[in-house]
């Protein structure tokens, strides 16, 4: 699914971020082609979420650049930056639905911020997106708190794709779901991304999810990309870090920080 032009949709160059004395990102270089689905794998606390937040502009990197469509968004500020991040839809780990709003208002949230979209139109689009993730109009008027975790995830997915974004981020899409619901969400992600023709970046430590979603997999360890290759090569990477992670072994080059 690599774009015919071969031009990178998102490019990270030497991205660095520290919190106090703790270095989380130590020079990330990653390029994601248009229409490509890249999954970043790695253990907890290796900086996967921080990477996404730097691209989204929720965190400012200490050094390095984030290029979206060839433009360095870290050099932009205010409105110009917002215009670029508007291209990105995001599915949050905990769904992050607004509990003060109904399901359909959540999905239609970004549509309503755009001028020229009437309430009725926004609602119709929202219902269409909900149908796309397998939810009927009967849940539209419910509050998110009344839904199960899997259904909340679906609503969050519908919200992430509501504005037909060019780029979609998935933060641990299957965490906290049972394996069956996890697979349903994975399949919905693949379908939605394909339908949009969007570029997708996911972060996960769930290998089943990574195998299903990814065209390409990148492994993050101690703030650096230690391996990057086609999803099919993940079992024959020849990389000790990747092997240890894929097989979930306690022994290997990755030493988990275990506090007694």
């Amino acid at each position: 699914m690599t774009a015919p032009t071969g031009e990178a949709k998102i490019e990270l160059r030497g991205l660095k971020k520290s919190f106090g004395a703790k270095t989380v990102l130590d020079g990330i270089d990653l390029s994601v082609g248009a229409g490509e689905s890249v999954v970043i794998i790695g253990g907890s606390g290796t900086g996967k979420s921080v990477t996404l937040k730097c691209i989204l502009g929720l965190l400012w990197p200490d050094a390095g650049s984030v290029l979206i469509d060839g433009i360095d968004v870290t050099a932009l500020s205010g409105r110009a930056r917002e215009a670029h991040t508007a291209k990105i839809g995001m599915l949050f780990q905990g769904s992050a639905l607004f509990d003060s709003l109904t399901v359909w208002e959540n999905v239609a949230f970004a549509l309503k911020t755009r001028s020229g979209v009437s309430n009725r139109e926004a609602r119709n689009i929202a219902l269409g997106k909900l149908a796309q993730v397998g939810l009927g109009s009967d849940v539209a008027a419910l509050s998110p708190a009344e839904l199960s975790g899997g259904m909340q995830k679906r609503v969050a997915l519908a919200r992430a794709i509501a504005t037909d974004p060019e780029i979609v981020f998935f933060d641990e899409p299957t965490t906290g779901l049972d394996p069956i619901m996890g697979d349903i969400i994975n399949r919905l992600i693949v379908d939605c991304v394909r339908q949009l023709g969007a570029t997708a970046v996911s972060i996960t430590h769930d290998m089943a999810s990574a195998r299903r979603i990814a065209d390409r997999i990148a492994m993050l360890h101690e703030g650096r990309i230690v391996w990057d290759g086609p999803a099919g090569d993940i079992d024959s990477s020849g990389n000790d870090f990747v092997d240890q992670f894929v097989h979930g072994r306690a022994e290997g080059p990755i030493e988990m920080a275990v506090r007694g």
């Binding site: 991040t85 995001m90 911020t113």
Partner: peptide, 17 residues
């Protein structure tokens, strides 16, 4: 609560300051 459940981050990704 909106902060710790990432709802504030979600606002920013939905073109809302």
């Amino acid at each position: 609560t909106m902060r710790v459940t990432e709802q504030i981050d979600a606002l920013a990704t939905l073109s809302t300051n």
